[in-house]
Computed example of a mutant assay.
Amino acid sequence: MSTHAHALRDSMTMLRRNLTRARRYPSLTLQVVAMPIVMLLLFVFVFGGALGNGIGLPGAATDRGAYVDYVTPGIILMAVTSGAISTAVSVSLDMTEGIINRFRTMAISRASVLTGHVVGSVIQTMVSLVLVVAVALAVGFRPHATPAGWLAALGLLTLLAFALTWLAAAMGMVARTVESASNAPMPLTFLPFLGSAVVTPDSMPAGLRWFAEYQPFTPVNETLRGLLLGTGTGNNGPIAVAWGVGLSLAGYLWARSAFRRGGTR
Rank of each mutant, 00 (worst) to 15 (best):
L77W: 01
L188Q: 13
L51R: 09
T13P: 07
L57P: 08
T87H: 10
V127F: 05
A145T: 00
P147I: 00
P36D: 00
Y252I: 13
R209A: 08
R261I: 11
Q31W: 14
A153C: 04
D63N: 09
V38Y: 10
L249S: 06
G195M: 08
R265F: 15
R9S: 02
G251S: 11
P147K: 00
V71H: 03
V119S: 02
L154K: 14
L224E: 02
A60K: 06
D202A: 07
L247G: 07
T165N: 10
A170S: 14
A242Y: 13
G262D: 05
S2M: 06
N221I: 08
A84L: 09
V71S: 02
L253E: 12
F190Q: 10
V32D: 02
M106R: 14
A148R: 14
A61W: 14
S180T: 15
S11V: 05
T264F: 12
V32Q: 01
M78K: 07
M126N: 12
W243M: 04
G48S: 01
G74T: 01
V80T: 01
L93F: 13
A84Q: 10
G195E: 07
H6L: 15
A175E: 04
W210G: 11
V32T: 04
F47Y: 13
L160E: 15
F217R: 06
M171D: 11
M126I: 11
F43D: 01
A7N: 08
Q124C: 13
I76C: 00
W254D: 04
P185A: 11
A22G: 14
P36E: 00
A240F: 03
G74Y: 00
L93S: 14
I123G: 05
P205D: 04
P36V: 00
A206N: 12
M173I: 08
E213Y: 14
L227N: 12
G230K: 00
V241N: 05
A5T: 06
A181T: 04
R24L: 06
I99G: 09
A5H: 06
T115Q: 09
V241S: 08
R24Q: 09
V178G: 06
A197R: 04
V132R: 03
R176I: 10
Q31C: 14
D63E: 09
A134Q: 07
P201D: 05
V174A: 03
G48N: 02
R110I: 11
S2H: 06
M39P: 13
T231H: 05
T231C: 02
A50I: 15
N236W: 09
M204I: 12
V198F: 12
S82D: 14
R110Y: 11
L188N: 10
M39F: 14
T87D: 11
M171T: 13
G54F: 11
N235S: 15
I55D: 09
L30M: 05
A138R: 12
A5M: 05
H4P: 15
N235G: 15
A148F: 14
F217S: 06
V174Q: 03
M39E: 12
S82N: 15
L57W: 08
T13N: 08
A206C: 12
T87G: 09
E213V: 15
G246S: 06
A250E: 13
A169Y: 09
A161R: 01
T115N: 05
N183W: 15
